[in-house]
């Protein structure tokens, strides 16, 4: 008897450990980032971060203002989300509600294939195909700008959004659809007013995951956004994102230097940004579920 109790307890403990692993890891990452970034508070001071110039290497005066990087990331993320969410959700609706089974068998694997393409390869595509297109479409001097980056990121986020939204839409009970059709609603009205709202929690989760991928994506944006650290709201200007900055500069920065600390600060801000997106998503979900 006692043996069984001990066994149960130890199994429970193992499971608890497994379940809390991710919490530990997040905490550890955060602590590690904070430890490396902390000295920045004393020299040159936190206020340095909130300036508009990111010039980490200079013979005159170095400057570590991360605002251009934050706005660069935000600009690219917002545009990419605005492009990817409608396309992704409409695609998911089409695949789950409208497509014939033949079309579905063809479309789904292709979309999932798109998700598996390495971001460097997508970056190549952006550099050689998309950037020249954007350049000539808007008559610009260079196609390496926020819009090109956003288009490319949208391309990478769409499979995630389609795949997860489609699962959500497909799991809407058939009885809801029948109830709507039986009241004389057309198929389109049913999709729009019953099925999609019922799947909304899943669709929001899908969009957030897509957005998470966009915020965190590094390689492709580094290749096509032009990497000019400037504050702008224009999609046709070159920008530099937080991720691209860390990836591009981390390899050459002297260990323990102010620049090194500053990059860790960027990392923390990036982490906080993804937390914020998650929290907003949770709130949105909760509000929706209360109705």
């Amino acid at each position: 008897m006692k043996k069984i109790v001990t066994k149960e307890k130890s199994i429970k403990l193992i499971m608890l450990l497994a379940a809390s692993t991710s919490i530990f890891i997040v905490l550890l990452i955060f602590l590690f980032l904070a430890k490396e970034a902390a000295p920045f508070i004393f020299k040159p001071g936190l206020s340095e971060l909130f300036t508009a110039r990111w010039v980490p290497v200079s013979f005159q005066k170095e400057s570590f203002g991360i605002l251009p990087l934050v706005t660069g990331s935000l600009l690219v993320t917002i545009i990419a989300t605005l492009i990817a969410v409608p396309i992704g959700v409409c695609g998911a609706i089409y695949i789950s509600e409208v497509a014939t089974s033949g079309e579905r068998r063809f479309l789904k694997p292709f979309i999932e294939l798109l998700a598996g393409i390495p971001s460097v390869v997508i970056g190549f595509f952006g550099l050689t195909v998309l950037a020249p297109l954007v350049k000539s479409a808007f008559g610009l001097q260079t196609g390496l700008n926020a819009l090109t980056g956003a288009l490319l990121l949208a391309l990478m986020a769409i499979p995630t959004i389609v795949s997860i939204s489609e699962d959500a839409i497909r799991s809407v009970p058939k009885s809801y659809k029948e109830g709507s059709l039986a009241l004389g609603a057309s198929r389109l009205e049913t999709i729009w007013k019953v099925t999609t709202p019922a799947a909304l929690p899943g669709i929001i989760a899908a969009s957030m995951l897509g957005m998470g991928r966009v915020v965190g994506e590094t390689m492709a944006v580094m290749m096509v956004t032009g990497n000019a650290a400037q504050i702008t709201a224009s999609p046709l200007e070159s920008v530099r994102t937080m991720t691209a900055t860390i990836a591009a500069e981390m390899g050459e920065v002297p260990f323990g230097s102010v620049h090194y600390r500053a990059l860790f600060c960027v990392g923390i801000v990036l982490l906080l940004l993804t937390f914020t997106i998650n929290i907003i998503a949770q709130r949105a979900l909760k509000k929706y579920r209360d109705i």
Partner: peptide, 17 residues
């Protein structure tokens, strides 16, 4: 037709509204 011929199902199916 479906406006004129209403239907109630075996399992109640109110919309999540």
């Amino acid at each position: 037709l479906r406006k004129k011929v209403g239907m109630v199902f075996q399992k109640s199916n109110p919309f999540p509204k």
